[in-house]
Computed example of a mutant assay.
Amino acid sequence: MSKPLLLAALSLFLAGNVMAAEDDSASTEKTESSAKPAKAAKKSADAKEEKAEDKKAEPTYPDWDVAFGAGAATDYVFRGISQSNRNPSWNSYVEFRYTPQKDVQFYAGTSIYQIDFPNDAFAEVDFYGGVRPTFDKVVFDFGFWYYWYPGGRTYNGLEPAYLNCTNGFYTPTGGCNTLEARLDFYEVYGKATYTPDDKLTLGVAAYYSPSWLNTGAPGTYASWTAKYVLPDKNLLPDGLGWYISGEWGNYFFGDTKDFYGNIPLPDYATWNAGLAFTYDVMTLDLRYYDTDLSEAQCNVLTGDDTATFRTKNITDINASGLGSKWCGAAFVGKLSFDMTAKTNLLK
């Protein structure tokens, strides 16, 4: 092949390679430029989805919800005093909640407890309602509570004794326990809880009734509570939590009405402390209760139908000499569940 032809062929070959390289470069730039908008569109879509999820997670107001639960305990102890004659008891409740705005909630509910009262009332049925305003880490609770004890009968201490004394007999001093059929009463209350972090909760509360247990004696109960969630990392099985909690309370009373002899009911202090385990909606609570009441004072407050006579129990306000063990130390185990409609049923 002559040199001119060889040079011409080489020129054509080089030109072809340059054009191919230019085509490849253009193709690459086109691919990259088209990929950038696609990636940007994906990021935008992801951002929109995240915003949609966040918006969905945020509650809207006004908001409605229903809380409900039930439990069974080895003893129903209320403010240090057994309401079930030291026997097992069950309870259940339902509470309706209305939240018109983020930091205010109105509520109304009812609960029922199995009891064993000396006047034969067969249950404690509660009706309550109030408002819970929130200010940062402090939640207040102001409300009204009505205690209804249906099915009771009056024991007035008149002859024949076995029909008209709750304990079914007269003591050697000629006295016995009396109790009216109607023990219903109401309270107004105010509470506040402070939660500095997700572990600790501190609370104070005050309750007032103008006629505690319909005795005619005004009653004021003040308490202080604390709860601390224990660390569970590597200590408990997955899903299981635990916490410790306790309460110290003081009850202050006035004088009773004529039926109960116009006597001053004894003030007292009560306390409890316990360890609880939680799993999902279930709670197992193991708790110790006690008071500073003597057996004679406890009898005055309860009209205990299982009270026994001892001469040491004869006092100015307990002439019968009967003594009750319903206010002493007690260890109580309770298994319960608590749910809300939106969290547990509609999620």
Rank of each mutant, 00 (worst) to 15 (best):
L7Y: 12
G328Q: 08
S33V: 08
C298T: 01
R310L: 14
V77I: 11
G239Y: 02
A73H: 02
L293F: 03
V204A: 14
P59F: 00
N167H: 08
A38H: 12
T28P: 11
V332R: 03
W271P: 01
Y155P: 00
V204Y: 07
F142Q: 12
E159V: 12
K51V: 10
F252P: 03
F331R: 06
P172N: 01
N119F: 09
D305H: 01
K325W: 03
W326S: 09
F309W: 08
G174Q: 05
I112S: 04
T178D: 00
K191T: 08
R86N: 14
A269P: 02
D232S: 15
N119W: 04
D305T: 01
Y170M: 11
S294H: 03
C165M: 03
V204Q: 01
Y228W: 13
D103E: 13
E22L: 10
T225H: 05
Y76Q: 00
T283S: 12
K36M: 12
D54S: 14
L335H: 00
T74P: 00
D136H: 14
G190Q: 07
F140A: 04
L235Y: 05
N156I: 01
F140H: 05
A40H: 05
T315C: 02
S27N: 13
A273N: 09
T110S: 15
T291I: 07
I314C: 09
S84V: 02
Y221T: 13
A181Q: 05
K312V: 15
G130L: 07
D136R: 11
L322N: 01
L200S: 05
L202K: 08
L265G: 01
G175C: 11
P264C: 00
W248F: 15
G80R: 08
F259K: 00
V125Y: 08
G249K: 09
L183A: 11
D232T: 14
M1C: 05
N119C: 11
K137T: 04
T283F: 06
Y268M: 04
I112V: 13
K56S: 10
T256S: 07
N85I: 00
N214K: 13
Q114N: 14
Y128N: 02
P172V: 05
D23H: 10
L6S: 13
L179V: 07
S324P: 06
W242L: 10
T340W: 10
G190Y: 00
W224P: 06
G239D: 06
K312G: 05
Y170F: 11
S33M: 09
D141C: 01
T99A: 08
A45N: 08
G274E: 06
N87Q: 15
V332A: 00
A67N: 10
F144Q: 11
T215I: 10
Q83R: 15
T195E: 13
I244W: 04
M1T: 13
Y260V: 03
K36N: 15
A9C: 12
V131S: 08
K257W: 11
V204G: 12
L265S: 09
R287A: 08
G129P: 02
